[in-house]
Design a protein around this nucleic acid. Structure first.
Lengths: 135, 135
DNA sequence: AGTATATTTGCAATGATGTTGCAAGTTTTA
DNA sequence: TAAAACTTGCAACATCATTGCAAATATACT
């Protein structure tokens, strides 16, 4: 599973990448850099985590998620993402109870009527509230 | 104008607050901390700018805007914001040409159909593209 | 208006977050 | 299995943001 993903993206298979990718797969929500550092303990250097995340984003394995508090979150991309070309036009949900951020892959961002002269190109939507697990 | 806003919000009238509030009123887009520091030159300490912005957010004079690159932007609230209770359910637009971020106060965030069990509370939408001035 | 009280500011120190260059270590290729 | 390519850790550095405290400024009171 983890190996497949790394190989499919032509990445060297290293302990760090395997471990971090596993974290994403075993988590149903999004992860912050700090979460990853906490989970991997003292195994990897901060820099390695940064670089691994950056590599994964570039390859289209994970994507950045916007947050209300301007922290950076990452989550696994669904299959239709390619290197350098993300298709994360789905809604993101932040639960105010469990504090998790979830990709709602099934829910696409709705169209919106902009004022004259405005040409939309990309749009993202962030919803906060209570998630399915907490209610 | 500037005085009215400060007084209405029970804030001491100081040079810093007047100057920074003027900046927002004279700008049609959103401002980053860095923009403000640049515009106010060497007049105020960085810390003062931070604290002023924080105060304004708390009072409901300005609100935070989500960005794609996870920087922090602020913009004037429309009149229906109160202290500790923002109503910025409008769409934000980032122009990829002039790089400005604009509040589209007239455009409200559309409803969206969430999966079962999800209870939405607040939603925000960020659209990027080309703005009315650039096209 | 002048003084007391409350608030705000600037400075210095500190912390959190993220980046870069380079040598040492690991993985891949053939 | 050795050479080439890539990845990692370390140290240094840059940026951004926060806090405590004393000095300065604004407001309230008589």
């Amino acid at each position: 599973m983890v190996l497949d993903i790394l190989k499919k993206n032509q990445l060297s298979v290293t302990e760090g990448r395997k471990k971090i990718l596993e974290l994403f797969i075993n988590s149903n929500g999004a992860l912050a850099h700090a979460d990853i550092e906490k989970s991997t303990g003292e195994i990897f250097d901060r820099v390695t985590v940064y670089r691994t995340l950056q590599t994964f984003v570039e390859k289209g394995i994970i994507h950045l998620i916007p947050t209300t508090d301007n922290s950076i979150l990452y989550a696994l991309c669904s299959d239709n993402c390619e290197a350098g070309h993300h298709h994360d036009n789905h809604v993101h949900f932040v639960c105010t109870v469990c504090n998790k951020t979830i990709c709602l892959d099934e829910v696409t961002v709705p169209q919106v009527q902009l004022p004259k002269g405005f040409k939309p190109n990309h749009m993202q939507m962030l919803v906060s509230g209570i998630c399915g697990d907490c209610k």
